[in-house]
Design a protein around this nucleic acid. Structure first.
Length: 763
DNA sequence: CTATCCTCGCTTTTT
DNA sequence: GCGAGGATAG
């Protein structure tokens, strides 16, 4: 039946879609329609008589899962195919079979910072000195072990590595304390399920049968545990379909093992291999550059990428004298194209290797009045007030959760100080009980003063009162926490802007809880709600609908595409990064990173370097990346970015040599803009003028503003952050401060008398 | 206990 | 150059 599922597909794509039984490896080059193939394949399986309950599709991120789910739904509206992240899949299995791995069904999922608390405690109780290794480093090493299925008792220290001996000593205790708290860390979720399947052959066989068809997306990013997991569920029914591209594996540093995809054909019998090599995204010129670069990697599977698109413009390679000029030139180019109506801001993206580089481009864009957004992975931190409130809920759900207990026993303050908490902890450890249980025995703990014991007893009764509500709707539970603990009260009636915003965040949490209750009329348990909270990251801050230039790291760019891409700072030490240069494997990963960046571009691609770069507050001479010498230079457009540059490609190797007089520029003082020949950018057309445009020139001595002219909700301008709005104010006279929410994202607090804030006139 | 000072160190990031 | 986290003072 040549049905609609195959319409418009290439030969290779059809081949993959048509495959139902047995293992299949789909090697999907960039822009080759991979998701389309996977979703159509699922739909085809369903039409071929496979029950949707027998299929599970695993992804890494919630975003990918969501995307796949909605696309499957479109093709097969009433199917109940389970599309899930690895972690959520494992979370469910752990709930069902918790007893097999020493957990209770209501176990807690610790995030990275919670786990770190446990680790610090474990380091303390084992009396291990961390003077030569931070807890963070130890945590990383433990995570590595867990990703590689190394159980605590099997861990062996490496004599060359100081951290590994610490890990050997602390890993078992860390794991004990997690189990004592009835908690798991993220890595446990996968490792424990894998362990459970190894130790319980009947269960493994049953689940293998239940999940007869398993699909794994981004297979090149799987680690050993994930590999063991899917392999053990594909024994009697080896219908494992994996999709990925070894050339786009950029997460080796967090445990991804390239061997999984490279050896897939060895791991299973009669593997069907389909290569998706036709690219539907980029021009041949861009593809050629990508292909030449990646051909320098050894550990890969060769693919020949091709496209039907017309050649398009050559890829440009630009060398600037300074990073400042690089940023200016990019911003000017974008401004000009937008002004001409040729492109919109959202058509452009700027990619860099490290977040710390973003500033220069931000500033240049701001000066040009171009709207932009930064997609950054660092703003992930959880807000304190949210974590506090949820900690109460977590403790209700799992009273053994010592991290939650420690967090809220004195929040808001109720006279239970550090030493009291420590005494409770010691008592708990002695008796082999949880801190909550220890708190119940406060009256008989000798070391505790009468006063402390009373404070603790009061807390316990408060907690018990709250716990009565555990089966009520989540919104009611959180509401009760906020009222009965006095948590809300401590922030109410406060003028402080931080407190105001805390209350706003709390209200948002409540309305999200209401939404959860609404969405889960049947299974809206607190347990379920907390699992959602633990496994979903709400800061999905990339909104493709906004008409803004996108700034992001190369890692963040994976999976996206833009008509016009600028890849910047392609210099030794940055790309490849200096910390990646000691091994070939890491160097190849850096090359893949560049490959990923290049292949995001649909029509235009600019690669650039600067001879001098301002970075981390210092000015440094740079060396162009070795990767640049691996590109098809004859096919590219080498441009002198500035009058001073040597332009022809033949002289290009000389460009990075520093003319003697250039050293005069190296110094700690002085603004670049003084030295650069000023070629003022074309002023953008009127419709483009944003607030930043109105800022007076850099460094001009402007009198500070009178604090009294500011008021709540006023639009203001800052020379660095651009346009913003005053969300709240506090203090008086010289100490009067304003909190400003900037349109570019950040929220900052200013002492008005000393700030460079200016009101925006309404004219 | 909390505010502020100072030191350190510094890829990439999801769950 | 900047922010997190520890130390110290009030």
């Amino acid at each position: 039946m040549a049905d609609s599922l195959f319409e418009g597909l290439t030969e290779a794509q059809r081949e993959a879609v048509a495959h139902v039984e047995g293992p299949i490896l789909v090697l999907a080059g960039p822009g080759s329609g991979k998701t389309r193939v996977v979703t159509h394949r699922i739909a085809h399986m369903l039409r071929s008589g496979v029950y949707s309950s027998q299929i599970v599709a695993l992804t890494f991120t919630n975003k990918a899962a969501q995307e796949m789910r909605s696309r499957v739904e479109r093709l097969a509206p009433d199917s109940t195919v389970w599309v899930s992240t690895f972690h959520r899949f494992c979370a469910r299995l752990l709930r069902a079979y918790s007893n097999l791995v020493g957990l209770e069904q209501n176990y807690t999922i610790y995030d990275t910072s919670d786990s770190l608390q446990i680790l610090k405690r474990a380091l303390q109780s084992e009396e291990i000195s961390t003077s030569h290794a931070t807890p963070e480093k130890v945590a990383k090493a433990i995570s590595w072990a867990k990703n590689n299925m190394v159980l605590p008792e099997r861990y062996e220290a490496n004599s060359h590595n100081a951290i590994s001996s610490i890990v050997r000593d602390v890993y078992p205790e860390y794991q004990r304390q997690l189990r004592a708290a009835n908690a798991v860390d993220f890595d446990d979720m996968l490792m424990l399920v894998a362990q459970m399947l190894q130790e319980n052959p009947e269960l493994r066989a049953a689940l293998d049968e239940r999940f007869r068809y398993i699909l794994v997306d981004e297979y090149q990013d799987t680690n050993l545990v994930q590999y063991l997991l899917v392999r053990s569920l594909s024994q009697q029914y080896p219908n494992l379909g994996v999709t990925g591209d070894p050339d786009q594996s950029i997460y080796g540093w967090r445990g991804a093992n390239l061997n999984n995809i490279l050896d897939f054909e060895k791991d299973f019998n009669q593997v069907k291999v389909v290569r998706l090599e036709q690219n539907f995204r980029s021009t041949p010129n861009i593809l050629l550059v990508a292909d030449q670069l990646i051909s320098h990697n050894k550990r890969r599977k060769k693919k020949s990428l091709f496209t039907d698109a017309s050649p398009g413009q050559p890829v440009r390679m630009l060398t600037y004298t300074t990073s400042h000029e690089e940023a200016q030139a990019i911003a000017t180019r974008i401004a000009a194209q937008v002004a001409q109506g040729k492109r919109r801001p959202r058509d452009f993206a700027i990619f860099y290797r490290v977040n710390a580089l973003s500033r220069a481009y931000e500033e240049a864009l701001r000066q040009q009045g171009i709207p932009y957004m930064i997609v950054s992975g660092v703003e992930f931190y959880q807000r304190k007030e949210i974590k506090d409130v949820l900690a109460y809920a977590m403790l209700m759900n799992n009273p053994r959760d010592d991290v939650a207990f420690t967090r809220i026993v004195n929040t808001p303050t109720r006279g239970i100080g550090k030493s009291t908490i420590l005494k409770l902890q010691v008592h708990a450890l002695d008796q082999g009980i949880s801190m909550m249980e220890a708190a119940r025995e406060a009256g008989v703990i000798e070391s505790l003063s009468k006063r402390a014991a009373v404070a603790v007893a009061k807390f316990v009764s408060l907690f018990d009162r709250l716990s009565l509500k555990i089966n009520e709707p989540v919104e009611d539970i959180l509401g009760a926490i906020l009222e009965q603990t006095g948590y809300r009260a401590q922030y109410e009636n406060s003028d402080d802007d931080d407190d105001v915003s805390r209350l706003e965040n709390i209200d948002e949490l409540l309305s999200a809880a209401r939404e959860f209750d609404f969405q889960h009329p049947e299974d809206g348990t607190l347990e379920r709600y907390l699992e959602d909270k633990a496994l979903v990251n709400e800061t999905d801050n990339f909104d493709a609908d906004l008409d803004r230039v996108t700034l992001m790291t190369l890692h963040a760019a994976k999976g996206l595409e833009f008509p016009c891409v600028f890849m910047v700072a392609i210099e030794e030490g940055l790309l490849p990064h200096e910390r990646s240069k000691d091994s070939d494997a890491q160097l190849e990963e850096e090359r893949r990173l560049m490959f990923v960046g290049i292949t995001r571009a649909q029509e235009e691609l600019d690669l650039s370097t600067a001879n001098q770069r301002d970075f981390r507050g210092r000015r440094m001479m740079t060396v162009p990346s070795t990767f640049l010498f691996e590109l098809p230079r004859e096919e590219m457009d080498f441009q002198a970015a500035l009058p001073r540059m040597v332009s022809p490609a033949s002289d290009w190797e000389d460009v990075h040599e520093i003319p003697p007089d250039d050293f005069s520029q190296i110094g700690e003082s002085g603004d670049f803009s003084d030295q650069t020949p000023s070629n003022p950018p074309e002023p953008p057309t009127k419709m483009l003028i944003t607030a930043a445009e109105m800022v007076t020139g850099p460094g001009s001595a402007r009198p500070k503003s009178d604090p009294n002219q500011f008021h709540q909700s006023m639009a203001v301008l800052h020379p660095t952050y651009g346009l913003g709005k005053i969300t709240s104010m506090s203090g008086e006279g010289a100490k009067r401060t304003a909190t400003v929410q900037f349109v570019t994202g950040p929220q900052k607090k200013f002492v008005l008398a000393f700030s460079d804030l200016r009101p925006v006139s309404k004219t």
